[in-house]
Simulated scan of single mutants.
Amino acid sequence: MTGQARKKPRPPLDRESLEQLALFYVGRYATTRAKLRSYLARKLRERGWVGKRPPAIEALAEKFSELGYIDDAAFAASRAASLGRRGYGARRVEQALYAAGIEEADGADARGIAADQAWDAALAFVRKRRFGPYASQSFDPDRKRKALAAMIRAGHPYELARKFIDRDPGDFPERDA
């Protein structure tokens, strides 16, 4: 060997080692059932399986959910609140929930959070990007179009984005009831 030591290949997984991997993963990361299943499937592809029956990944994810190690609804609500504080809109929240494998029922509260904080999220986004009322000078039509596109990509509805982008510096729109 020249310079680098070769790593010894890891042994294939069995039921106990698969559960230990799952426990380590949920202990270290805020996760969902879908993300845990994906992680365990990847580890099985990498290391193999020694059991006679196929591994019960789905059952393990459900068991961890029943034990309270995983809570998809709490994960979804936390993700929605976090994205809203960072200035992302409801559509972007929906995309994040889909990517995390959150089921419709578990994401209901998160969707409500995103809808409730739509105005505050848009305000945070224009403040961070210095658009509309937070700009140092009025935007020309091309720059307004680009700013509007950025807000829409961030998940804000067109009408709400327009309210902020069409404003001059220091001219804040009235909050809708």
Rank of each mutant, 00 (worst) to 15 (best):
R10K: 12
E94L: 08
R53H: 12
D171K: 14
L21H: 15
M1Y: 04
Q117V: 13
E104F: 15
A149E: 09
G170C: 10
A61F: 02
A110T: 03
D72E: 06
A115R: 13
R145A: 12
E16M: 07
D120T: 01
S38T: 09
Y25V: 01
R92A: 15
R85K: 14
A56K: 06
P9M: 06
D166R: 13
R153W: 02
A105Q: 14
A80S: 06
S17L: 06
P11Q: 07
D109G: 11
A77C: 14
K128P: 04
R162N: 09
T2R: 09
L18A: 06
T32W: 05
D168R: 12
Y98V: 11
E19P: 01
A161D: 05
Y25F: 14
F139T: 05
D109V: 13
K52F: 10
P133G: 01
A100C: 11
A147F: 07
A118C: 04
S65R: 09
R37K: 11
L148F: 15
A73H: 03
G48I: 11
A177G: 10
A135T: 07
A121S: 10
L67H: 05
M151C: 06
L123F: 13
F164S: 06
F131L: 14
G170V: 14
G51D: 07
A76T: 04
A56Y: 00
L123A: 13
Y88C: 03
T32H: 07
Y25G: 00
Y25S: 01
R91N: 08
A121W: 02
